[in-house]
Design a protein around this nucleic acid. Structure first.
Lengths: 209, 209, 209, 209
DNA sequence: TATGAATGAGGTTTCATTCAT
DNA sequence: TATGAATGAAACCTCATTCAT
């Protein structure tokens, strides 16, 4: 391994340390109430250093989401190539969704927040590009499985992209909405059972007769 | 009409003017990028005046959401008492959802934003209470219809609250997510068709065999 | 009594109502933290009305002090013409001081605050004039008693104005300082005993051997 | 000198620069009429920088007072250990008081202002603590000298704390009140002669026969 | 590469005061 | 005389970002 490569690797490592610090802070306070100084302190670095690795606060925040989006896309794609029936693949999507939620609920909530509106407009092209890519990968994989089911005459013959949207949006909606229901009513976390119900419902709806 | 009544009416009118100005500004820039000064200018008032009608920026923003949430709850409750089958009622929910979306997409997006996370924590108790009330009304009405369907042996025998959550969350998710898809890909607005697909799917899933 | 006189009297009455309201508010919150609106509410009037009776907040505040200063000056002058020895008169001054403190400690504190620095510079000439007049009356009366004592060979032969200043300033200092000592240490109110000690001391100091 | 030490020293120096700038501004305009921007300009810094060294305006203002209070306490304590009679020590207190007044009349006025009422309530605990400490030191030293005098049978047998209060309060009262007399009557500054008179008086009063 | 002191624009909010009714 | 809605200046303070070291 050459010097250049070692340096690259170190840089990557440092970047991840920052992301981890940022995750903690953003998770507990939300985007606007978190300060770069807090993140720097958490990462045991100085504020200035953060800017060597991320263009600005927005982009640092976004890279959290990209990270999990990437992970989500990867896991979903693995499902596609599994050698199981399409019905089972839908079940596997549900499992992946739940597993990702378990892995870091806050960042997932972040992700869907991010993907909805206000924030999206201030991102750099590079970041936007990445979001597009991983989003498309995840979404495309789901679409393909649905297509497969339609072709096999198992799923109803609707526009597969729309069906994939429904799946994805329900996931997002449940994560966001059931989370807020918890906050509003001091209930415990019903995200996972609700996700299961949703998939049971949608899966039934997808299948002919 | 007495003087007192006239004054009350004027006051209410002024409040609505402010809300309308705020709607415009918040819709185009989001919460954080909008300033009270812009809103005041839009309403042809001075900044200080806004604070005669709303305690702070947060509360002004929130009242937009409450307004539409109230409307949504009202419309949904009307559906419940209609003299039609439960399947048709589900269809009518879809129509209400679409109609509300048509009425003001941005504020609806605001509403679901609001209901998810960060913001929720800084609201005054009074406002929070209102959100709870209208949220419960809307959600409760949906739950009741689903219960009805279960009792009639038409719908699958799952926990009706969870089923209502799925309906509601899918709505929220589609509104938020499909909106962002539009932003990401410069597509046109697919919210309505996606909502239709979602309801077709969920409705099928709800029904036995 | 003519119409004009009746009106004048009504006006005066209203003014006193406002002053009383202001006293309450200023006493409990201090000058800067009190708002004209609070005072208006307390007086069961509207903010605008206050300005019919007082040019501005400053002047309203000041008239509280003038009121007590006037009262103080009156009481002190009464002592001067009493038919008692100069030593007894000094004792009587002490009694008046204590009595005024008892009557309204907060406003007295206000008075001495007012008389010291910052505020003094923003007052209208008319108000300033009144303060000067009553201040001079009170101070002059004390000076005269001291002069009397000197002439009678009872008091030490120092500059009587300076001696009166000492008396007056000790009063002010004790009221201000012992009040703060109470705040700092959560003690109870030692103003009155300290005033007694001070007068015992000063009185002894004033008298020849 | 290591880097760390140099930095600390620079930081301390900067803090003093700010305090000096603040002294100028506060002295000429009083607390409320002075703005952080003016102070920043005076210190040739930006407003934000002030907040790196002082939590807020209040605390900046207070540190002026603490500085002089500390100095005052130090000087007074030096007197206590001098090898002179208690009568002479009282005279020395007078000298210290006059010298401190000479050193910076405005800040001394500030100090006594601060110590009286309204302001005291908004200070941070740390700052309050410091005021308490230095206040107690100064006051305690005076009390001890008086105790000494009482024990030696030289001073009258009154409660020594009360006597110390009288001394201290007279100082405060004279500084505040004679200052305002100057403002009211455009006279020249009589604080020092009045202090001398006061001490002559009080000293005589303190001593037996 | 890392630091962290300094920046300074910018936003929210308050409230004394005015003025049309 | 009384009202009270509206004003709008003004001030504090924050914090993302920069840059000399």
């Amino acid at each position: 391994m050459g010097i250049y490569e070692r340096k690259q690797r170190e840089k990557e490592k440092r970047k991840i340390e920052i992301i981890n610090a940022a995750r903690k802070v953003f998770s507990s306070k939300g985007f606007n109430s978190s300060t770069m100084e807090e993140i720097a302190t958490e990462a045991e670095l100085s504020p200035g250093t953060l800017y060597l690795y991320f263009k600005n606060k927005e982009e640092l925040h976004t890279s959290l989401s990209i990270e999990i989006l990437k992970y989500l896309a990867d896991e979903i794609q693995k499902v596609v190539i599994e050698d199981i029936s399409v019905e089972k693949k839908i079940d596997r999507f549900r499992d992946v969704f739940i597993q990702v939620y378990d892995h870091d609920p806050n960042i997932l909530i972040n992700l869907f927040h991010l993907q909805s509106g206000e924030t999206l407009q201030n991102l750099s092209d590079e970041v936007l590009q990445q979001i597009k890519i991983y989003s498309s990968l995840a979404h495309g994989a789901i679409t393909n499985v649905i297509k497969e089911g339609i072709e096999q005459g198992i799923f109803i013959d609707e526009h597969p992209v729309a069906l994939a949207d429904v799946l994805w949006a329900s996931y997002a909606g449940i994560v966001l909405w059931v989370d807020s229901k918890r906050l509003l009513n001091d209930q415990k976390d019903f995200v996972k059972p609700t996700l299961k119900t949703a998939f049971a419902l949608i899966s039934r709806g997808l299948q002919k007769n």
